[in-house]
Amino acid sequence: MSTSIVTLNVGGILFTTTKATLQKYPDSMLGSLISNGLPSTRDANGHFFIDRDGQIFRHVLNFLRSSQLCLPSNFKDLDLLAAEADFYQISPLIDAVNEYRDAFTKTARTFYLEIIEVRTGSTATMPTSNSRVKTILLGRKDVLLSLPPAVIGTDFIERLCCKEPQEHTEVELFGSPVRLRVGEELHNLGWSLISSDLSTSSGFDNKSQFGMSLIIEHTFRDRWSRDFDADEPIKINPNHSLLLEEANV
């Protein structure tokens, strides 16, 4: 085996790399381990043994290989990685972890939209000729205005003009099957469906020309969310700008 290849046992996990990688930053503990013969412990197979977190070490080693901090989007052990960077005394990694922390610890803003569809009729399960369907979209005015006409149409503009940007309001949606269509559009825009509920109620209509008839009402409620960066602006969709200007005249 080439003497340039080194196997490390970090907390019971084996890592194979090169001496050049470990010497990437000569002043670090790993650099001194290879270059200066820093006193070290060996395991039963003669590998360098380091009594530290092996799961986190893979991120340390990847940084040595690429000089870039590449972490998964759901990474939650930043404090532990910072401690390991300090232990190994890799100054560029310490700086990279601090920069990552500054960039991703800003408070994200989460906005919500709700689609409520009410179906009323003798069956109410499908928008057929014997049922009445009403669908509304609820959210903040500025968030609603950021959506394209394919989601909210254009007939709502005049009703929104009297609202403040952060005021919550509702928009009636038209078409069939509008709830599913708008849900697909929201998904394509980066929104996530966080809940979908169905509630049912029933009663009798004594004013029906056919006598007492059973009326069933189904209410579908879909809740969507999307995270915005702390400094990310909510931009009005360009297709709505002209309509807003005309409506304000």
Rank of each mutant, 00 (worst) to 15 (best):
G11E: 10
S2T: 07
F57E: 04
S195D: 09
A150P: 03
D227H: 10
M1R: 12
T107F: 04
T7N: 01
D102S: 09
Y112W: 11
A247N: 07
V97W: 00
S202T: 09
A247E: 05
T105W: 00
L8Y: 06
Q89W: 09
L193C: 07
N239Y: 13
I56R: 03
G183R: 02
F156V: 05
L22C: 05
D231M: 00
K106L: 08
I56E: 07
P165T: 02
A44Q: 14
S35K: 15
N62Y: 09
Q55D: 15
E117S: 04
R159M: 12
A150F: 11
S225L: 14
G203I: 04
H59A: 04
M29Q: 11
T105R: 06
C161G: 11
P148F: 10
D229L: 13
I115G: 02
K134W: 03
L22G: 02
S241R: 14
H187G: 07
L81Y: 04
R119I: 05
T123P: 02
K106F: 14
F210W: 12
S122D: 14
I234G: 03
G139W: 00
V143K: 01
P148W: 09
N36V: 09
L144S: 00
K19L: 11
D205F: 10
R179S: 13
F63G: 04
E246D: 11
I215R: 07
T3L: 10
I216F: 05
D205W: 01
F87M: 04
L214F: 13
L189R: 00
C162E: 12
R132Y: 10
R140E: 09
F204E: 07
I50D: 00
S213N: 09
T219F: 05
C70T: 14
A124S: 02
T154I: 15
A85R: 05
L61G: 08
S122F: 10
N45P: 12
S122R: 15
S91A: 10
A103S: 15
L8G: 04
F87R: 02
P26Y: 03
I115Y: 03
K19D: 07
D77P: 08
K207S: 14
A96S: 06
V60D: 06
D205T: 02
P26M: 05
L242I: 14
L22Q: 01
D155S: 11
T128S: 13
P26I: 04
G31T: 03
F174T: 14
I152N: 01
P233E: 03
S202K: 08
N237G: 11
P92L: 14
